[in-house]
Every structure is written in structure tokens, then in C-alpha cells.
Amino acid sequence: MVENRPYVTFMAHAVLIFGVIIVALPIWVTFVAATHDELRMTQIPLPLLPGGHFFENLNEVLFEGVGSRGSPVGMMLLNSLIMALLIAVGKISISLLSAFAIVYFRFPFRMGFFWLIFITLMLPVEVRILPTFAVVADLGLLDSYMGLSLPLIASATATFLFRQVFLGVPDELLEAARIDGAGPMRFFWDILLPITRTNIAALFVILFIYGWNQYLWPLLITTDQSMYTVVMAIKQLLEAAEETPQWHLIMMTTLLAMAPPIAVVVGMQKLFVKGLTETEK
């Protein structure tokens, strides 16, 4: 702080607290709704303080699901987790390998490969959904974990990030490793990977959130209820709410859908901020 102005500092706190309240309000109201029973959630005005039915609702949603046709949310959470992990681990692995090849090897078509990867930066899944759907259907990957994750795995951003990191690694390390008789893969595994550990962790946080929050793609390629992810289920619940509003269960599901990524962001805040600022530059 440059000068001491108690009023301005007080106002800064007031504005920030107001901002926090606005940001937290939707999440708080959701949490509160998930702690009441069905009857209370039909009485106007809705409660603003938590009730005592949290674990009851949690139990019902996790193991039985919402409504008569709903599938257990516990299973959807597992599907979401598998998809998010496959996408995050897959993206990081293939990007590490290709960045390693592009930075550390001289080989034909090196720049051609680089530009091919670069192009993917410009093609988000939303703009090529129909033909990508056709490809996945032709490969027989509908309703499978591979179909959920593979088309989202190629990432120019991750490749660029690792390229940047590798370019900053001192040349002496490779020279030393060579003198000690290490081959390329040995160098990659024992030297390159350990020194990029924090970058990998930071990227993992971002990619986990990205994978967990996928919506349109799972919506299109899953028809089997046992493959539903929790994020895509929200939409069906909202539609069902038009007929039978079971808001206490819907909001419990919503809470479960956002809890894991929020836990990751808040719990690994340093890595998250690092990942965010690195991938966008």
C-alpha cells in the first residue's frame, strides 16, 4: 500500500466482500437446497439456511438416482472421473512425447508435424461435432470410455507448453547425460520428466477440470445410461424438473457435479494459477 487511507481500505474490503457474496450466492443456494426435504423445497420462499437432510439426500442420489428412471449418480461420478483422468493423462502423455521429439530430434517433416499439431488449436470440438461424431460412430466407439476421451485428447496447448519448457532446459544436461552413456529415452525418463514435474502437475489440474466439465461431447455419444457422466445428466434433471420438481435431489446432484473440480481448484490453488497462466501464454 502506498499511503494510509483507512476509508479507502475499508471500501476495498466492502467491495470485495460484496463480490464474494455475489460469486458465492448461487453455490450457497444450491448447497442449502441440497440439505432440505422435498416438501420444504416446494414452499415459497425457499430457505436460505441449511436444513438437516443432507446425508439422506446424498445417500438417495448416490445410490438410487433422481426420479424413477434416473440412474445412480455414484456411477455417473465414476464415469466422469474415468473420463477426466483419461483426458488429462492422455493429453499430457502424448504431448510430452511429441514435444520431446520436436525439440530434441532432427528428423524429416519435423516442422510439418509441428504445424499439423498447431492446427488443432483452431478446431474446438463444438465446430466440428457432426463429422467427428460420424468418425467415432464408424470406429464403433459410441458408448465407450475411448469414444469419450480420444477425440478430446489431441492438444496443441499442452504440446506448446512442454516445447517451451524443454527449450528452457540447459543443453549441458543432455551433454552430461550422453557422456554418462544415456540414450534418448533414458534421458527423457530420468532427467527431463523429473525437472518438468511441477509443469506437469499444473497442467494436470487444468486438464482435469477441462475433462470433468465436458458436456456436449458426452451428450452426443452416450445413449447407454451406464455411460452417462454427471455433468451431462444435469440437463436431463432440469428437464424432468418441469414435471416433478425434486429440487432437493437435483441440487444435490448439481453439488456433486461441481464438488470435485472445485476441490481441485481450491486445494491446489498454487498449481491451478500456475497452470492457468502458463497454458494461455
Binding site: A101, L150, A154
Partner: peptide
Amino acid sequence: MLKRVHFGPSVLPFLLVGPQILITLIFFIW
């Protein structure tokens, strides 16, 4: 772009970029 100290041509780099290029071709370019 390329490291001053690097490995010479072999099959290895093709295997390394392989997975990403394959996925890019099948799910993006096509």
C-alpha cells in the same frame, strides 16, 4: 526451435510424435 545439442535421425522421433499425429489426423483433420 531445435536444441543446439540434439539427437540424430532415427525411427524413434516418428514413434514419439506418432500417437499425437494419429489422433490429430483421425479426430481433427479428417
